[in-house]
Amino acid sequence: MTDDTHQITENAVVPKRKVSDRTIAISCLAFFFGMVGMAFAAVPLYAMFCQVTGYGGTTQRVEQMSDTILDKKITVRFDANTSGGLPWQFEPVQRDVTMNIGETKLIKYEARNIAEKPTAGRAAFNVTPQAAGAYFNKVECFCFTDTVLKPGEDLEMPVVFFVDPDIVNAPELKGVNTITLSYTFFPIAMPAPLAASTDVKKNGTSGQL
């Protein structure tokens, strides 16, 4: 191959490589933003999946209590946390309870806003060991509910639950005598004042220019 031919070949390859690099970069960015969008869209679906299957230690939500109570005890411990700088004191009224498997229990958590202004939070939860989430059934709870507390306000939040008797047939939970139910409150934006919304409607100024 002559020098002229070699030079022509190099000149022909370089632009193609630049176009290829640019295409790859654009594709990567598109993939990244697409995955971010899918992640946000998938949050409700993932939460629903976890609640149905108990995946990741997510407890089950049921409408009725168990009709079977076993002559076998299990201890449930209660944990409370806050995240993201939420200025609340949050804790269970009692740290644990020992109960019969299948028995329905009522326990309570307490939250207090220690800030000098109203603040809002929303609680998420999980159970450990994670495999026990599929057998921990809540009849009533405060999870995923937006909660607003005034300065210094206290709130008592009940949880009604039972442990499914089928837990004794789960080989992965053989020998497990203690389950921990953990709640974490995260800060959320304060809702718009109702009076302000009413005034906007009366004045007919919905923000349109």
Rank of each mutant, 00 (worst) to 15 (best):
L106G: 02
E110D: 07
R95C: 10
W88E: 06
Q94K: 11
I74V: 10
G85K: 05
S83L: 12
S83P: 09
T82C: 13
T98W: 05
K105M: 11
M99G: 06
K108N: 10
Q64H: 10
T75P: 11
G84H: 11
E103N: 04
N100M: 14
I69H: 04
K72S: 04
I74F: 00
Q89S: 04
S83A: 15
F78A: 11
I101E: 05
R77L: 03
R95M: 15
Q89F: 04
R77Y: 03
T104A: 15
M65D: 10
M65Q: 12
D96H: 08
A80Q: 03
D96Q: 11
F90R: 01
A80C: 02
G102H: 10
I69C: 13
Q89N: 02
G85I: 01
A80S: 07
E103G: 05
R77A: 06
D79Y: 03
K108S: 08
T104R: 07
V97T: 05
E91Y: 14
S83R: 12
T75D: 09
N81G: 02
D71L: 14
T68W: 07
E63L: 15
A111G: 05
K105W: 09
F78I: 10
E63Q: 12
A80M: 02
L106A: 08
M99C: 10
V93C: 04
S66K: 12
K108W: 08
S66D: 14
T82K: 04
T68P: 05
T75N: 13
G84Q: 04
L70Q: 03
Y109I: 00
M99Y: 05
Q64M: 13
K108A: 06
Q64L: 12
Q64P: 01
K108D: 09
N100I: 03
P87W: 08
M65N: 13
Q89D: 04
L106Y: 08
T68E: 15
S66A: 15
K72C: 01
Y109C: 02
V76R: 02
D71H: 10
D79C: 03
Q64R: 06
I74L: 07
I107R: 01
M99P: 00
E63P: 00
E103Q: 11
E110S: 06
P92T: 09
T75I: 14
E103D: 13
S66T: 13
F78K: 05
R95H: 13
N100Y: 07
V93K: 06
K73N: 14
T104S: 15
E110P: 04
D79E: 07
F78V: 11
V93F: 06
G84W: 10
Q64I: 07
W88S: 10
F78W: 08
S83D: 15
R77I: 05
A80H: 05
V97C: 00
L86C: 11
K108H: 10
N100E: 08
E63W: 12
K72L: 02
A80V: 05
W88L: 13
V97I: 13
W88T: 09
V97A: 00
L70N: 00
V97K: 03
M99T: 10
L86W: 02
Q64Y: 12
D79F: 00
F78N: 01
A111N: 03
V76G: 01
K72N: 00
T104Q: 11
D96S: 13
K73I: 03
V97D: 03
E91N: 07
I69G: 08
S83Y: 14
T82I: 15
F90N: 01
D67S: 15
E110I: 00
S66E: 08
G84F: 12
L106R: 03
L106V: 08
Y109T: 01
E91D: 08
N81Q: 14
